[in-house]
Design a protein around this nucleic acid. Structure first.
Length: 241
DNA sequence: AACCAGGACGTGA
DNA sequence: TCACGTCATGGT
């Protein structure tokens, strides 16, 4: 089976298994009619795109806060930011790093992440979301990647979910799953794995968003304990095929 | 009680 | 380039 076929089949299997994920999950900036805190929401008609700068900022903050950190801890930090009313560019810009760090304490690495959030908001004060969205992917990606504390994965999350750019996100689970399937080696480079997906799939925003979300969802369940994937009920067939 | 979590960066070789 | 160490709270 060709690589392209494998990656497309994998997507179909995961989608069939779990259904649409509706990422990125929003928390404090959920609209009133949507449901509980920290969960993704999926509407077949109104897809879960961020509709305002408030939600876009929350996606950026969440992407930073969840770096090497359980999403539940990141949500606690997001709720803490909301409680302290640190939910706008203006308010965060006026807040000292030490106070910011205190508010996001539960996400871990709080000193580093406070600085990263500072670097992000400094940039957003010069380049609005609207401006960044209009730029070609390569240019906006370069700008986001230039923020200290934001590496390839966080940058791609921001681009894919907040700026709605067609870029594929590679995370630790994706690497483990592909390595379990024998498609890549344990330590394949981020950019080359990203290329595998992007060259195998239709350049479609929703597919990129859903696929990454599905991989994380599946990875959380079967690829967090060593040996990875050994109890995976649905991919063992694909692996041996 | 170790181990892991939706990473990124600095350092020395 | 690459192999480590560091950052840190909270779950299981």
């Amino acid at each position: 089976m060709t690589l392209q076929r494998k990656l497309r089949q994998l997507y179909q299997i995961l989608l069939e298994q779990y259904g649409p994920q509706g990422w990125w999950p929003l928390s404090y900036s959920l609209t009133p009619q949507t449901k509980s805190v920290g969960e993704s929401r999926y509407h077949p008609d109104i897809y879960s795109f961020p509709t305002n700068d408030w939600q876009k900022l929350e996606i950026c903050l969440g992407a930073i806060l969840t770096q090497n950190t359980n999403w539940k801890n990141a949500v606690k930090a997001l709720n803490s930011l909301n409680f302290s009313r640190l939910t706008t560019l203006k308010k965060i810009s006026k807040t000292k790093n030490s106070d910011l760090a205190l508010a996001i304490r539960s996400a871990g690495y709080y000193n580093q992440k406070a600085k990263t959030i500072r670097n992000l908001t400094d940039l957003l004060n010069h380049h609005s979301f609207e401006e960044l969205e209009k730029l070609p992917l390569r240019e906006s990606r370069k700008i986001i990647l230039n923020i200290k504390g934001i590496g390839p994965e966080t940058a791609d999350c921001i681009l894919l979910y907040a700026l709605k750019k067609e870029t594929f996100v590679i995370d630790a689970y994706t690497k483990r799953i592909l390595s379990y399937l024998g498609i890549v080696s344990e330590q394949e480079e981020y950019s080359s794995i990203k290329q595998l997906f992007e060259s195998s799939l239709k350049n479609d925003l929703i597919i990129f968003q859903e696929y990454h979300a599905l991989l994380v969802n599946h990875g959380k369940t079967y690829y967090s304990k060593r040996p990875y994937g050994i109890d995976d009920p649905i991919l063992n067939d694909v692996a041996s095929a």
